[in-house]
Structure formats: C-alpha cells, structure tokens
Design a protein around this nucleic acid. Sequence first.
DNA 1: GGTCGATAGATGCAAATGCATGTAAATCGG
DNA 2: CCGATTTACATGCATTTGCATCTATCGACC
Lengths: 153, 153
Amino acid sequence: MSAKATESPVRLAAETWESLFRAQVAVMRRLQAGPAFKNLALNEYDVLFTLSRCPSGWLRLNELNDHVLLSQSSLSRLVERLEKRGFVERMPAPDDGRGVLIKLTEAGRELQKQIGREHVRDIAALVGPALTGPEQQELLRLTEKLRASVAMH
Amino acid sequence: MSAKATESPVRLAAETWESLFRAQVAVMRRLQAGPAFKNLALNEYDVLFTLSRCPSGWLRLNELNDHVLLSQSSLSRLVERLEKRGFVERMPAPDDGRGVLIKLTEAGRELQKQIGREHVRDIAALVGPALTGPEQQELLRLTEKLRASVAMH
DNA sequence: GGTCGATAGATGCAAATGCATGTAAATCGG
DNA sequence: CCGATTTACATGCATTTGCATCTATCGACC
C-alpha cells in the first residue's frame, strides 16, 4: 500500500490522511465506549478540557470554536447547556461588547479532572501497547507539525 | 511539552493521543469547509468511500459500522437516506436472515469518485506542505500500526 | 426438535446539530 | 463623524444523532 503511494506525492498525502483518520476513529470508538463518557458527550468534555488548559481561565467562544469540531451555533448551545448544568460560567467580554468569556466553575473543574483521569488511563491502555515510546514521541512530533502547518493557513 | 512527557509513559500516551486528535480536528475543519462536502455529509461520504474500496462490492451494515464513527441506529438511517437518494442499494444477506448487504449504485459510485477527486486535492494541499515525503510515510506507518493494534482488542 | 441467550437491524422519541438568519457591536473608508 | 461592511454570538427550524427498545434470526446446548 505505502509502496505504491511513494509513486505519487498526492497519493501519499491522501493515504496518510486516510490512515490518520481511521486510527482516530478506531481509538475514539474505544474511548467513547468507556464509562468516562457516560454523563458527558465527547464535545462537552473537550470544552471542559480546553478550558482547563487555558492559563487565564477565561476563553472567548470563538477561540473555543477553533479547538472543537462543531459549528458556531452548536457550540453556543453546548456552552449554554454546560452553564445550565453548572459546569461553566459566562461573562460579557470587557474589551468587546459582542464577545462572551467562558470559564470553568469549581464543579466543572472537578468533573474535568475526574473524567480526565479515567480518560488518560483508557488512552494509555490503548496507545501504550500499540507503539513504543520513541514511536509515540515521533507520532506526537509529526501530528503537532501537521496541526501547526494546517492552523496557519 | 514532549520533554516532560518522557518522564511518564502514561503522560506520553495521553499527549500523543491529544496531538493526534487535534491534528485530525484541524485537518477535518478545512476539509469540511471545502466545496466537496456541500451536498454530502462527511459520514455519508465515508460510507460511499468504504463501499467503493470493498472488493466484492457488497458490505454488511455491521461491517460498515466498524469504519464509521456512528451508532448502529444512526448508520441504519444514514444508509436509508442514501438509498432514497439512489446512491446505494440494499439486499437481504443470503447466508443470514437478519443481515442486510449494501452496495453502491452506479450513481453512488460516480458521486464518490467525483467528491473523492476534490477531496484528494484538498488533502494534498493541506498535508503536502506540512510534512516531507519520508515524514508522511512514517506518519502513515505509525497510524496504521496504532489502528491495527486498537482494532484487535 | 425446543429453549435460551446473543446478534443484526429497525424504530419511537428526546436531544444535539447545522444552516440560515437575526441582533448588536466593532471596524473601515470617506 | 457617518454609513457600510464585518465580526461575535444567539435563535428558529429542519435534519441528524443516540439511547432504549422491539422484532427476527442465529447458535449453543440439552
């Protein structure tokens, strides 16, 4: 398969993406099946996770939208639901009257940590046996390079 | 980031997965924005693509379900819609009275090819400039290894 | 052969999603 | 400074999704 792909750069790129995508689907299937996502959809956890990684604690809705694979309107309503459940807080952006700032509540931070721990265990159980340490480091490097390149147009 | 991850295998696995996932989101965002997915959702294209890659032409619903990130019921209805639109055909499985076999119609095959061509161009434009040829080959190898390991429990 | 648990797929229904659009605020061009 | 364009987010509405459940068939076991 990859032998033939070397013949054409376009074909190689397509097969690489296809393989990356299938691997993501396979891993994601397993993760979603775990008990960690019983009470919180993947996208909801993703929002809590992204917020937990934010140094200032506050993030704009449109910044959040760059990280999540959701339309703007869906994210808007997802955050609305998280707010109703008491996991995030909203606040009008001080420097932009149109904007909204989001941050985790204490309950949200706790929930993220709890799910995050299970999540990390599940990931380690899936990825750990699949690739050696150096292979994981290389995969990390390559995907980060890909993401960075795609992000800057 | 990856320097610290070397301290712990669990942490390295988690960061590797996180990076893979983010790269997938970043690339997918771009692909979905393209005109190729104007008339067909990603999951719908994915089904057509999977069918087009199947040697016999026929696939069971549950086999399809392994490739797509969708619940069984959602896939059932997705195929139903594709059938109504004339892109796939259904047939009861000859060897299993419960099963259903799916295959592309001629229109479905045409649509898959047409979208596939645009899709491949978009992918090449995103992945090509991001990674060198050898890097793409390595990424292909690693993700394939990961997928294979995860697939066999 | 008959019973029982497992599997394949369909369906009712509530919830989530995306598209198109609305509103309000920021930015630009003169 | 003012009108025009763009940006940020919200909302109405139709479509899609998942969960729970249902039906039918398969397989194992006695």
